[in-house]
Amino acid sequence: MLLSLPLKHSFRDGRLLIQLDGPVDMKTVPEIRRTLLGAAKRREVKEIQVDFSRVTILDTSGVAMLVEIWRGLARKDGLLRLNGLSESARRLVQMARLDRVFAIVDDLERGL
């Protein structure tokens, strides 16, 4: 079942897997955030996994956006997973001390 989102995604059993592409920085975050927050609000969505394997740049605004999504999901005991983070992206999340808060997984979920 597919939700109507402008990003590449798949949805099954309450888990939404979204693939981001290109830069996730101060220019692109406002748009992406709107989509993801909207998705996190929906009742059917229990978990969101964000695939970063095709993301070129991640900056602090991207990390802040992830915090907001995490908050939206945590309100309904949901889960936020991240996979495919590059070395520098992972370091950024670590510097923000959020590597324990977000569930960072290394295997790519099949489905896309």
Partner: peptide, 23 residues
Amino acid sequence: PLKVHTRLASETIHIMALIKLNL
């Protein structure tokens, strides 16, 4: 600078500031 140069939401900016403060 974030308010002047970007169109990020205030909440996002607030969290970014917290991240930098923590750093």
